[in-house]
């Protein structure tokens, strides 16, 4: 579904990523973890053409309009209501206004936001805004979903609940997902494959781990699976070795 081959990314003269190779097969949930500032987000931006790689190749087996991107910030249009925000992508795809808004309303209902369609983003809580952003992306029925630490700003309970809802949806629809996160537990509990990025600059993929836990999964119960703990320790050790030591004397 998605192949990133030998990709290098630089900001101006400063190299960020080198020799990035990763593959996400159809129906697979892959996560990309790594130290802060290693360039995880840049890989997603390159896949969505928001950023042009310096070299290498990015192959997609789906048309661009079947790729959904869930950002770290909800980034909803503040002047549009929740319903209009969800309908936006459909309107861009020339779906008639009435139909787009009706479908948007269904999506809001299915994500627990029935009756919130007329509210503006500033009238919604962080969790509700995140659900609107999810509805906006899922309403387009993407086959490949790219997520950039989408729930980082939410508190633990809301985060777990939304992750579970989204995971359920992904499993039912057999979506292909590439998730960027710094949360190791989130990565393991949701993914089939976890890629680990080394510390930048010139970060590269240093390892790939398969998550051998059966689906469907429950985010909380998965954490009690014996494999979960052993993979968590391995990832922890890898990333601890990557992170620069903190000089407390400063």
């Amino acid at each position: 579904m998605l192949r990133v081959q030998n990709v290098a990314i630089a900001y101006g003269a400063e190299p960020i990523l080198e020799n990035i190779d990763l593959e996400v097969k159809a129906g697979e949930f892959a996560s990309l973890i790594g130290p802060s500032g290693s360039g995880k987000t840049s890989i997603l931006r390159a896949v969505t053409s928001l950023l042009r790689p310096q070299s290498g190749m990015i192959e997609l087996d789906v048309p661009r309009n079947e790729v959904g991107f869930l950002f770290q910030d909800d980034a909803l249009l503040p002047w549009r209501t929740a319903r209009q925000n969800v309908a936006l992508g459909l309107r861009i795809r020339n779906v008639a206004m009435e139909e787009a808004e009706a479908r948007a309303e269904q999506w809001l209902s299915s994500l627990g936001l029935a009756g919130f369609g007329d509210r503006y983003p500033r009238q919604l809580s962080g969790g509700q805004r995140k659900r609107v952003a999810i509805a906006q992306v899922l309403a387009l029925r993407p086959r490949l979903l790219l997520m950039d630490e989408p729930f980082a700003s939410l508190d633990a309970i809301v985060r777990t609940r939304i992750t579970q809802e989204l995971l359920g949806w992904v499993e039912r629809e057999r979506l292909t997902v590439l998730l960027v996160t710094h949360d190791l537990e989130e990565a393991i509990s949701a993914s089939d494959v976890v890629y680990v990025l080394s510390q930048g600059p010139r970060a590269t993929i240093r390892s790939r781990h398969e998550v051998k836990i059966a689906r469907p999964r429950n985010v909380l119960e998965t954490r009690r699976h014996p494999f979960f703990g052993s993979l968590l320790r391995r990832l922890w050790d890898e990333l601890s070795g990557e992170s620069p030591p903190v000089d407390y004397a400063l």
Binding site: T48, L50, R64, N65, V67, G68, F69, F71, D73, A75, L76, L77, W79, R80, L88, G89, I92, R93, Q136, L140
Partner: peptide, 26 residues
């Protein structure tokens, strides 16, 4: 203009005309 909104519209498949209507004008 908030670049996050621009990128959001671009990733939803919007072009220049949609950007002007949905982001720049408001």
């Amino acid at each position: 203009v908030d670049q996050r909104l621009v990128e959001r519209v671009l990733t939803l498949g919007g072009g220049r005309r949609v950007l002007i209507r949905e982001v720049y004008v408001p």
